[in-house]
């Protein structure tokens, strides 16, 4: 349980980055999002991103010295993650400011830069865990899983807020279904790579699948997938209530998956 702050940090930060990229992209392409709605979504993403940073400090022995974590950026992926995620949060605050001042051109520019910085932050975050000392983590599936959390939760979060405001003009169900199919493939790849890996990886797979958390994770994932599949053709289902329910299911699913990622990591 001592890695719980990292579970919360990685899930929330990836949600914030995914949501931010979605908002920036919808705003850029459709230009149908009103200022007040954009501001609400942008502010909620900044709050989520800020909570992620605060929670991550609880993992440190010396939280007040956390600023020093950028010192070894030349070699340490953790240092890079802290730097890029910090940069992303800063830029998303600036992006929110441009929503407040209703400056679309500057908003688009800053949003584009923050999107790149956010993607680098997720990349750095995944690279921290791709270490030979922990065979269950040392695989490209870690990278896919981290990006997929962002792609699964981010668009859905923005979609449900847009649906609440009555401004949803994009089929979120379709985007989410594709990301869930990708997540299912990655899940299969992950478990097959664990089973064919070192004894510590095989043990990680056993610990994961022999715990009820895994089955709750799978159940919430399947239910969310089924609801989203039904909503693709039934437009009446594309509403805020359904998206909120699916978001909660997938948030639980991703949270539990990440929890097991940390809890079942066996050292060499």
């Amino acid at each position: 349980m001592h890695d719980l702050p990292l579970v919360i940090f990685t899930v929330l930060s990836q949600l914030a980055i995914g949501g931010f990229v979605t908002l920036w992209w919808f705003d850029r392409k459709n230009k149908t999002i009103t200022r007040s709605t954009g501001l609400i979504i942008s502010c909620s993403l900044v709050v989520l991103g800020g909570i992620a940073v605060l929670v991550s400090l609880f993992h440190l022995g010396q939280p007040f010295a956390a600023y020093r974590a950028i010192l070894n950026i030349k070699v340490s992926w953790l240092s890079r993650e802290v730097t890029f995620y910090g940069g992303f949060v800063g830029l998303s605050v600036l992006y929110t400011w441009f929503w407040l001042k209703d400056m679309p051109a500057r908003r688009s520019l800053i949003g584009g830069i923050a999107t790149i910085i956010g993607a680098i932050a997720i990349f750095s975050s995944a690279k921290i865990y791709m270490i030979p000392a922990i065979p269950a983590w040392n695989s490209v599936t870690t990278m896919f899983a981290f990006f997929l959390t962002s792609i699964i939760l981010g668009p859905l979060f923005v979609g449900l807020l847009l649906a609440f405001r009555g401004e949803l003009s994009v089929n979120i169900s379709r985007i989410s279904i594709f990301s869930l199919i990708a997540a299912a493939i990655v899940m299969i790849l992950y478990f097959s790579s664990l089973q064919s890996g070192l004894p510590q990886a095989v043990e990680a797979a056993r610990l994961t699948t022999h715990h009820f958390i895994f089955w709750i994770r799978l159940f919430t994932f399947v239910i969310a997938f089924a609801i989203l599949s039904l909503s693709i053709k039934n437009k009446a289902m594309c509403n805020a209530k359904i998206y909120s329910f699916v978001f909660v299911l997938l948030f639980i699913s991703e949270f539990l998956a990440r929890f097991q990622f940390y809890e079942t990591a066996n050292h060499l």
Binding site: R68, L71, I128, P132, L268
Partner: peptide
């Protein structure tokens, strides 16, 4: 200098 992030302990193959 240490901030107690424990990442070194995770990365060391010999714990």
């Amino acid at each position: 200098l240490c901030i107690g992030c424990q990442m070194c302990g995770k990365a060391c193959p010999y714990s």
